[in-house]
Computed example of a mutant assay.
Amino acid sequence: MASRTRKSERRTEALTRERILEAAVELLDATGEGGLTFRALTERLVTGPGAIYWHVANKGELLDAATDTVVAAALAIEPAESADSPQGEIRAVALGLFDAIDEHPWLAAQLATQLSRSPWGAVAPRILESIGRQVRALGVPEGSQFTATSALMHYILGAAGQNAANGRVLGPGVDRSEFLDATSRAWKELDPDDFPFTRAVADQMRAHDDQAEFLAGIDLILAGITAVHPPTT
């Protein structure tokens, strides 16, 4: 009787859209987009497909909603450091998305797809708004706000996505320090006439921290924005 009650409770829980999306994110993290099927979802939720279709019409809608769920959670994370300035808020947004893309292997591809295919959906406006409000607070003129916000958004998603892809290509069995050291040595052996710059920064490649480099890029863009559009008093 107790077992039947627990099963009934799980079925009731599966009828909520929030629980369906939570299970979808879990499946995506574990198996990727190919593993997210309605059959796998019904098995995980211990329910029938009709209960899921009541909340989500198809896999495309499910992927869109799962992506929005993860992005919304990333943007809602309280920053570890003080973010009492527009620059600090932008860094917090950037770091939240950086960590989310690193944590969820499928997210970068979904963000690229959604921003290209349906920029009117929930995800693009959510990210644009979180950055754009702070760009406006920097005092950027209205006619330049879209360009400045787009530059930040594309850098954040592109750099974070590339960083996450680098980690997955290496795989869990590869020591990052050894890989960077090998790369640094290979760069130093390049032809000095053809690759003078690459040889010069080889040691920096060995010692760099991905997150620190990412945030340094944000600071460079912000410095450029404020140099072109100095804050007004």
Rank of each mutant, 00 (worst) to 15 (best):
A2E: 15
K7W: 11
S8Q: 13
E9R: 14
R10V: 10
R10D: 09
L15I: 15
T16S: 14
T16P: 14
R19S: 15
I20K: 08
I20S: 07
L28W: 00
L28Q: 00
A30L: 09
G32N: 02
G32Y: 01
G34Y: 04
F38I: 03
F38C: 11
A40C: 07
T42W: 03
E43Q: 11
P49A: 12
A51H: 04
H55P: 14
V56H: 06
G60T: 05
L62E: 00
L63E: 00
D64L: 10
V71E: 00
V71T: 01
L75I: 03
I77F: 12
I77P: 11
E78S: 12
A80S: 08
E81T: 08
S85E: 07
S85M: 05
I90H: 09
V93T: 09
A94T: 08
L95S: 12
G96A: 06
E103N: 13
L111D: 03
A112T: 13
L115R: 10
R117F: 12
R117Q: 13
A122S: 12
A124L: 14
P125T: 05
P125Q: 04
E129F: 12
S130T: 04
I131R: 02
R136Q: 13
P141R: 03
T149N: 01
T149Q: 03
A151H: 09
A151V: 10
L152T: 03
L152S: 05
M153S: 08
H154R: 14
L157F: 06
A160I: 02
N163G: 12
A164M: 02
A165T: 06
G167F: 03
L170Y: 04
V174S: 06
D175L: 04
R176S: 09
E178D: 11
L180E: 07
D181K: 12
S184T: 02
A186N: 09
W187V: 15
W187P: 15
W187M: 13
W187E: 12
P192E: 02
D194Y: 10
A200W: 04
D203S: 14
R206M: 07
D209A: 05
Q211L: 15
A212H: 11
L215S: 05
I221T: 06
I221L: 09
A223G: 11
G224V: 07
G224A: 07
T226N: 05
